[in-house]
Nucleic acid binder design. Structure first.
Lengths: 268, 268
DNA sequence: CGGTAGATTGAGAGTCCTCAAGCTCTGTGG
DNA sequence: CCACAGAGCTTGAGGACTCTCAATCTACCG
């Protein structure tokens, strides 16, 4: 830590420091100044809806990389919208084998299944430092009653996430290691790009090979060898926490990936 | 076909014949006489809601085993509730590899993702002859607006189905062949049991080993060898289209399966 | 009795996994 | 300024699990 930073720390709160050090983007105090909505990736809401969302929101929350937002098995009582950073949903078997179900990126609604699903639960863990808007579950019914349009949006989000898990199941069940890696790279790149998070042909890529392995249902070693090969073939490059698709065409073909028209998505 | 049947055919419509021959249970003309609701597996609705559902329903449909209800890629414009029989959701890669995403049993809502999901679509195929209630998608928004409680129910169903796909992803990604088979047998048995479809310790089991393989992400041959072994070990038995769990404890342990308290589920 | 769908089995080949080390980079402490 | 520890990435080797190919067998149907 440099002298300047140390000096700075004497006048800034530790919390704020963490923010600076990790590049965490905190949630804005009011939904009106939400930066996510300005990306154009989300469906617009009218003033009334926005006001309701604002009232629905019970606060914000910041977690550090590696923290657990929702524990497997333990119901959470809250809903969240991920505002900044990466997280993932996962399930584990009792002997520790872990499967990542899907990654959560800014704008994703978190915790909906906790309420409804009757199977065992899933956990949610932060990949990077993250900031979230918090909603209380008790008010969810109010939302459906008062603003059916928002209820409709929530159903949309639920169905969209299911579609994502569907894709991951197809990948884990029927693609080989090479195809799986290619699929994941394409999928994440496109999602981030849609959010306007691609810069100079690259996107942030904060996950490690263990995350990739747990997502794809592969071992760490085989994941490594597969990614290494794809990199040697010049298909992609991961460096300094960023991902470049050096040959998207080839990756797309390998993965049997189809680009879909980017639709706007609801944002709560 | 026996003489009696041939004789009978002369006075009955072919459609009706199909019904008889396949044991198809047709949808009742009115929701008030819905047999599914009487099973006790579903959350009760009040008279107003029931009336709305009745109005929402635009008709019924019967399909034969093997028929495709919704084609991959092609949007369907309709929603369905499966009334009787088995179906499944699936996705395929362009070279034909198929992954079954989840099985659909009586009471399951079908086609919700078609509206919302932005990835490629999934197909839906009938395993047995099936009968369905049909709803027009245009009225879905009406439903949310007029009966927020039903909108809430639909979100519930969407989240519940996602939970099921989550489980299947964990299975395909992290369980070995033996565990996968054990998991599927437990899962299907419990779901059918909950619907009151277990009789004398067995449930209908109309799927073949190719279905099992496509569900679990295994090859047909390896699926066969695995199921054969479990049967030799006395864990289960499949005969005449029915499934017996001869040793549920062992299956449960193998699969790392946890029985969950059976909650009532909404029914549209 | 031939034809077809589905279940079985054997054999050999691959893909993927586990075990075991090294290597690189970064932050920490002496 | 360098040794050291920890996290993450890489590589090699051998073995286990699954896959593909090829038949055979059974049950049911016309």
């Amino acid at each position: 830590m440099s002298k300047d930073i140390l000096l700075f720390q004497t006048v800034a709160s530790v919390l704020f420091m963490n923010t600076i050090l990790s590049n965490l983007v905190p949630c804005p105090p009011a939904c009106a100044s939400c930066q996510l909505r300005k990306t154009g990736a989300f469906t617009p809401v009218d003033a009334n809806e926005l006001a309701f969302i604002e009232a629905f929101r019970s606060g914000t929350l910041a977690l550090q990389a590696g923290d657990t937002l929702i524990h497997e098995q333990r119901p959470s009582g809250k809903l969240f919208t991920l505002y900044a950073g990466w997280a993932f949903r996962y399930k584990t078997l009792s002997d520790g084998r872990r499967q990542i179900l899907n990654f959560l990126l800014p704008g994703d609604l978190i915790g909906l299944q906790q309420e409804f699903t009757d199977g065992a639960m899933h956990g949610i863990e932060a990949v990077t430092d993250i900031s979230l808007c918090v909603f209380s579950r008790e008010k969810l019914w109010d939302l459906f009653r008062s603003y059916p349009s928002l209820g409709y949006d929530i159903t949309w989000l639920a169905a969209r996430e299911e579609g994502m898990v569907d894709d991951n199941l197809l990948t884990a069940g029927r693609r080989n290691a090479t195809e799986r890696v290619a699929m994941l790279l394409m999928h994440l790149y496109r999602r981030l790009e849609r959010l306007g998070l691609a810069h100079d042909g690259s996107v942030a890529f904060p996950i490690n090979q263990q995350h990739v392995a747990d997502t794809l249902g592969l071992s760490l070693v085989h994941t490594n060898k597969t990614m290494r090969r794809l990199r040697r073939l010049g298909l992609h490059e991961i460096r300094n926490g960023r991902l470049w698709l050096r040959n998207p065409k080839a990756l797309q073909q390998l993965a049997d990936y189809y680009d879909v028209p980017l639709r706007k998505v609801p944002l709560l």
